[in-house]
């Protein structure tokens, strides 16, 4: 298909995906706090309420638990809700509906229903919003069978994966890093999907595999450029989906490079990189490892307010450079 490709921001790409979904599928509707005339806390829904009406772009009360439950109920009975959390942190208020209901309903009922709900979570630090508005909780939800959890890193992917999520019969949780909203990239016009559960090799390399998620993909790519000049040839794998994880792509990459560095913003302990590391340690790639697996994850603290502290909380490019160098030169 020849589709025109334009530069869009990540936020515009999401909006375009939602507009396409609303246009092409009567069952689709949006729910969330201040997504109507306000346009969403991050202006992602924008003017969709004007284009599609308040019946399909529904402002909810500040009721994350109830709202999530309504979305689940609507999904089970035939609609395709896209539920926006104002901040991913507010998932904590709705965990009951997400974890006990959305994720398990199909299983508990022996396959009698599907729960095609999409939930969007603006996530991550870097905005100075401190501890309760900056978390990366994808690992929490990634821990729950029945959910699909994705972290698109580019405008292209977020549009394609959101459309794939809407078409998916199961609950899909999208973690969108807030700092990505304004980043731009090529986005084809019209309908297309990017598969859920498929990682993408953003850069091929021989010496070291960096498995990164979300905004860390960009930091890893930036680091890879510097490392290239130093003769370290880095392969960057954009995991894209936390659950179900694309084990094959990661395993093949590690088999090739013999070195694995996981970079993720969520708290390091028990985070996505922990799972990737363990998965590799259990896999056939183990016998190809020529160095310990290294994880760079978020600090074991809440996200602080002070900008310098905040930066220090999550992996930055120099951290990736240092870790990659030590891995590639065998001093680790």
């Amino acid at each position: 298909m020849d589709q025109a490709v334009r530069e869009l921001s990540y936020a515009q790409a999401i909006q375009e995906a939602m507009a396409i979904a609303l246009e092409t599928d009567e069952r689709v509707f949006l729910m969330g706090e201040d997504i109507g005339v306000y346009g969403g806390a991050f202006q992602v829904t924008g003017d969709l309420v004007e284009r599609f009406g308040a019946d399909r772009v529904i402002d909810t009360p500040i009721s994350e638990l109830g709202g999530a439950g309504v979305a689940v109920g609507a999904a089970v009975t035939g609609l395709r809700p896209i539920f926006e959390f104002q901040f991913s942190d507010f998932a904590t208020l709705a965990m009951e509906q997400i974890v006990n209901q959305a994720a398990k309903m199909r299983y508990m009922l022996g396959g009698a229903v599907s729960v095609p709900v999409v939930m969007r979570f603006p996530a991550g630090s870097g905005t100075g919003a401190a501890a309760q508005h900056s978390q990366s909780l994808e690992a929490w939800l990634g821990h729950v069978p029945g959910l699909k959890v994705i972290q698109p890193a580019t405008p292209h992917d977020v549009k394609g994966m959101l459309l794939a999520a809407v078409a998916d019969p199961d609950p899909v949780m999208i973690f969108e890093h807030k700092l990505l909203y304004k980043t731009k990239g090529p986005v084809p016009e019209g309908y297309y999907t990017v598969p859920i559960g498929k990682a993408e090799i953003r850069r091929e390399g021989r010496d070291l595999t960096i498995v990164a998620t979300s905004i860390m993909v960009h930091k890893a790519l930036e680091a890879a450029k510097t490392l290239e000049a130093e003769g370290i040839d880095v392969e960057v794998v954009d995991l894209r989906t936390v659950r179900p994880m694309d084990k094959e792509t990661v395993i093949e990459s590690v088999k090739k490079t013999s070195r694995l560095l996981c970079v993720y913003e969520g708290v390091k302990t028990l985070g996505v990189g922990a799972e990737v590391s363990a998965m590799i340690a259990e896999s056939e790639a183990f016998d190809f490892l020529d160095a310990p697996i290294v994880r760079l994850g978020g600090a074991e603290t809440p996200i602080p307010y002070n900008p310098e502290l905040e930066k220090a909380t999550v992996p930055q490019v120099p951290d990736i450079l240092a870790a990659a160098r030590s891995l590639a030169t065998g001093s680790r």
């Binding site: 109830g66 999530a68 309504v70 009975t77 809700p81």
Partner: peptide, 10 residues
């Protein structure tokens, strides 16, 4: 309870 409300929304 919220699921019932969602079903009613449908």
């Amino acid at each position: 309870i919220p699921i019932a409300v969602g079903a009613a929304l449908t």
